[in-house]
């Protein structure tokens, strides 16, 4: 009996554990919010949480792809800022310019991703350094050319940030749509499978006949484009392009934390987007509860830090110890084969 329950616990995937942690956070949040005399599940509160998820969600989805490929992207906050000022500048408050603005912003983001991907996969520079470098380059460009806010978003574009379908914010729905796309990409396409292979062991992947540069390049481009989406959303919310909005949000480190919280191995090759979304949700619930409890903003970071380490510690141990399923749980077929012998 004990072995069986142990086996069941062991059989729980890391995504399952993240789900449990999220459930725990929601329950704890409900209790704490109730103590404050509020209802956690009120429409307004749920809207707040879902809205808070959207920006970090976009960036974390992209970051998941990059981390799965065994790289990192620290340039995302600067890409988000850059997209915001470029698109805002082109839109200049005119509804007719929304499409060119969006396309130009995402194009710039994709170009940055292409540079990141090229430096990582072709020049063989560690993703940490490559993206730190491109991030610094963009940050210098932003600081030199954009003092203060730049451009403005027309009201039609601002609607994306503030409209709802039922209780659900449109921005979060778009984010979840991107997440679904990323899940499909990873599970159903050759590119996705190759990305896992390259992240697991680039050399083995190469020897198996995979072109290792292409998945990594694609992951970086997608990550930057998603960061660009986050930048566009920030533009819609703020209605102006702010050159510092990305770095103020610490989206680089927080997105990596969300990815790891979601059960993806930092070394690459293992993990999924569902877990990441759960990780982002944990952050959003945590922030929401702390805001309701009026915790000091500086102390919130302390709580965040403790929760990140504690949550990752729960499964980091077994994630590494675990051997492939076929070695630990003999299935019916295996025992039948055993008897036949």
């Amino acid at each position: 009996m004990s072995t069986r329950t142990g086996g069941r616990l062991h059989g729980l995937t890391s995504t399952g554990i993240v789900g449990l942690v999220l459930l725990g956070a929601v329950i704890l949040g409900t209790v704490l919010t109730a103590i404050e005399g509020r209802n956690f599940f009120s429409t307004g509160n749920l809207r707040d949480i879902l809205t808070a998820m959207s920006i970090l969600g976009f960036i974390a989805i992209g970051q998941t792809l990059v981390v799965l490929g065994g790289s990192l992207d620290l340039s995302v906050p600067f890409v988000a800022s850059l997209t915001g000022v470029v698109s805002g500048g082109i839109m200049a408050g005119d509804t007719g310019n929304v499409l060119p603005g969006v396309l130009a912003g995402l194009g710039v983001a994709a170009a940055v991703g292409l540079v990141n991907g090229f430096v990582v996969s072709v020049l063989k520079v560690h993703g940490f350094i490559a993206s730190l470098g491109t991030g610094l380059m963009i940050s210098g460009y932003l600081a030199t050319n954009y003092q203060g806010n730049h451009g403005s978003a027309p009201s039609s574009f601002r609607m994306i940030g503030i409209s709802f379908i039922g209780p659900l914010p449109v921005s979060t729905l778009i984010m979840l749509g991107c997440a679904a796309g990323a899940v499909l990409l990873l599970r159903r396409t050759r590119l996705g499978h190759h990305l896992y292979a390259v992240g697991g062991d680039a050399e083995v992947a190469r020897l198996s006949g995979i072109r290792t540069t292409i998945p990594l390049l694609a992951a970086h481009v997608l990550c930057s484009v998603l960061a660009g989406c986050a930048g566009l959303l920030l533009l819609a919310r703020l209605s102006v392009g702010n050159p510092n909005v990305g770095s103020q949000g610490q989206y680089d480190l927080m997105s990596i934390a969300a990815v790891v919280l979601g059960g993806t191995l930092l070394a690459g090759g293992k993990g999924n987007v569902t877990g990441t979304i759960a990780g982002v949700a944990i952050f959003a619930v945590m922030d929401n509860v702390m805001a309701v409890m009026q915790v000091d903003p500086f102390l919130r970071n302390v709580v965040r830090g403790v929760v990140i380490v504690a949550a990752v510690a729960v499964y980091a141990r077994r994630e590494i110890d675990r051997r492939p399923a076929r070695f630990e749980r003999p299935g019916v077929l295996d025992s039948a084969l055993e008897e036949a012998r």
Binding site: I256, A257, F298, L299, V302, R304, G305, A313, A316
Partner: peptide, 19 residues
């Protein structure tokens, strides 16, 4: 605890700076 050092020290950074 086998938490990646990137995450441990990132959390330490958040916690210390907050404190």
């Amino acid at each position: 605890l086998r938490v990646p050092s990137f995450i441990v020290t990132l959390a330490m950074m958040l916690a210390l700076l907050g404190l």
